[in-house]
Amino acid sequence: MAKHPLQMTINGKPVDAVDIPDDLPMIDYLHEYNNLTGSRLGCGQGICHACVVIVDNPDGTSEEVRTCITGAHYFAGKKIRTIEGHAKRDEQGVVTELNPIQLRFVDEFAFQCSYCAPGFVNAATVLVEKLQRQPVAKSQLEQVIEDSLGHHICRCTGYVRYYSATRNVLSDLGLVKEG
């Protein structure tokens, strides 16, 4: 397999690599080349969504992309965020601040084993960012959450706490309007 250099921005840091195989899946690039293992391999086939990362588009929008079925070179020149990049840390690496979704998931016992948590955090974070551009009407709130998180598989929790925590975050952040 041919190899080419690959440049992208991961969690705000430019990452340059040479000799990345043209057919390398992104999840392997994260795990084996960057030691970022938080984007988890669940099905390896784009079904469970445990492996999603966030791509920040030039127009200011963000979206989740499945890394297990997407090639690393798809992300050439792109800015991505992984689960490891959301929290703020001090110099010792100790977490000093979580993003609102992470915080709420922790507070509401949203996950159990947590293998799927990175996917849910990223999906819900993308939803927060989407609603920050365009708030959702209260009557549509549950549907919007279902549309955003509905493909994510969790085997432990039955989804209840992920969903209610997300709903509560969206309300608290003022992203839900009457109607």
Binding site: D22, D23, Q45, G46, R66, C68, T70, G71
Partner: peptide, 22 residues
């Protein structure tokens, strides 16, 4: 070819042989 590897090969396989039942 690179587009294919980027967004298609994950399911249709790098050599275009597909994945059984997928």
């Amino acid at each position: 070819h690179q587009q294919y590897l980027n967004v298609c090969a994950g399911c249709h396989a790098p050599e275009g042989e597909g994945k059984p039942h997928i």
